[in-house]
């Protein structure tokens, strides 16, 4: 059964469809929250996210766009907890457009294959935890949650170009961490 069908049935008030939706998306939401926050807060924030999802679900106009909507809510809860970190990073290093940084493209493609080869492995999770929050969230949404650049842009409320530049920077930071650990792409 597709997400859209489940969401439409849940919007009608079918409890079984709502339970199945929670079952299906419980782990992806928790994974995103846990990659952004510590273990102590992850469960509470996940519960808070689902409460907001249930309250907002009757008003969701596009059931087919459930995943970006769900992660937008999750991101809002995470951002509330990390407001200080987001503000500090924004002040320290404003986003650079991808076209202003052409030198990084070769390194990007090299490290991208390394990231993709590591995508199911626990090492990636540990490395991602060391990244700044803005780059970390894009990396988690794009690689771990398998969302498109456009969906990431909608979730984070930024242009697609900014998503690409953050992804690029995240890959370079990850490459540096990988090299520190002795991995050579």
């Amino acid at each position: 059964m597709t997400d859209e069908l489940l969401v439409a049935r849940a919007q009608l008030g079918e409890r079984a469809a709502l339970a199945e939706l929670v079952e299906r998306w419980r782990t992806p939401v928790w994974t995103y929250v846990r990659r952004m926050l510590d273990a102590e807060r992850a469960d509470d924030v996940t519960q808070e996210v689902w409460l907001a999802v249930i309250r907002g679900l009757p008003g969701l106009r596009e059931p087919g766009r459930f995943a970006p909507w769900l992660f937008t809510i999750a991101r809002r809860s995470v951002t509330d907890r990390l407001r200080g970190q987001y503000a500090a990073e924004e002040a320290r290093s404003p986003d650079v457009s991808p076209s202003a940084d052409p030198a990084g493209s070769t390194a990007d493609s090299a490290v991208e294959s390394a990231v993709e080869s590591l995508v199911d492995r626990a090492e990636l999770v540990a490395l991602v935890a060391g990244l700044p929050v803005r780059e970390r969230e894009i990396l988690v949404l794009f690689y771990l949650e398998d969302l498109s650049v456009e969906d990431c842009a909608q979730i984070c409320g930024i242009p697609a170009g900014t998503v690409k530049s953050r992804l690029s920077r995240a890959r370079r930071l990850l490459r540096a961490h990988l090299e520190e650990k002795g991995y050579r792409p």
Partner: peptide, 22 residues
């Protein structure tokens, strides 16, 4: 490092959301 899992099962999570759905 082992892969972490959510502490709450789907059933427990739904039970905790129950007051909002009652």
């Amino acid at each position: 490092m082992t892969e972490e899992e959510p502490r709450l099962s789907a059933r427990e999570l739904i039970d905790r959301l129950e007051p909002a759905l009652a």
